[in-house]
Design a protein around this nucleic acid. Sequence first.
DNA 1: AAAAGCCCCTGGACGC
DNA 2: TGCGTCCAGGGGCTTT
Length: 296
Amino acid sequence: MPELPEVETVRRGLQPVLEGAVLTRVEQRRADLRFPFPERFVERLTGQRVERLERRAKYILVRLGSGETLLMHLGMTGRFTVALPLAETSVQPGEFRHAAGGLPAHDHVVLHTAAGATVTYNDARRFGYMDLIADAGFAEHPLIRDVGIEPLGPDLTPAFLARAARGKTADTKAFLMDQRIVCGLGNIYVCETLFRAGLSPTRAAGRLATSTGKPRAGADRLVPVIRAVLEEAIAAGGSTLRDYAHTDGSLGYFQKTFAVYDREGEACVRPGCTGIVKRRVQANRSTFYCPNCQRD
DNA sequence: AAAAGCCCCTGGACGC
DNA sequence: TGCGTCCAGGGGCTTT
């Protein structure tokens, strides 16, 4: 379920366990996820100190003492389980399924720290992946090079959106989903953003800009809405995470009710609106929207 | 170059 | 209870 807010929530959950930790043992239980693991994956991680945990787009970046960075993408079903040294405090965020043979199903990578904690990566569909990238030249790496601006940073402005959208005939939904322009938004938050901004998902992206690339009203509305949607989701995930870190282990990510996502057939939540949320398919993904609030 | 399709993979929900 | 179908928050690759 990882879009930017979920990835950031996971990063914050892993941070107290991994930052400053030394990886004493690493288990890699299969040769590939979406892509093959890099050469000598286990050897290059074992013995390393984790300097910092960062996030870029939907990637979690583990900065290592060796001058390499472990890059992790969660795909659709990637999850981490953290087990702390004391049995009483061990927590298992998310479901913990066991295969018939004994080993938990789909636990592909396990990191053991010198302090006795374990961090387990579980990914049923294996759309996630991991890579090890030298810090020198990191920005030019193919996985990083073409990633667009961070939506919560200073680069997201109406002028930026207008310049990027100018002349584009693709619909606004595809424009916001495109990680090369603004990163971090996925299907849920694009639907929520378009609803809150009152923009039709099928509207041509080029209409965010004038013919000379200056922002029009849609671009002005999108910027604060994108920020608000993501920040609210992070705040909700963060509160869930505090519970998980200190008490019963009931993480399961951020579960908030959405305004339109997965609400086909339900009444629009906007006060006074009599619209019914519709679902349509764009680029093989479901789009949820209110045909009344998002006419154009 | 941009846009549209297809594909990767497993599991859960649902209908019969 | 079992089986078939559809759907899922990711994005890369190929075709047009």
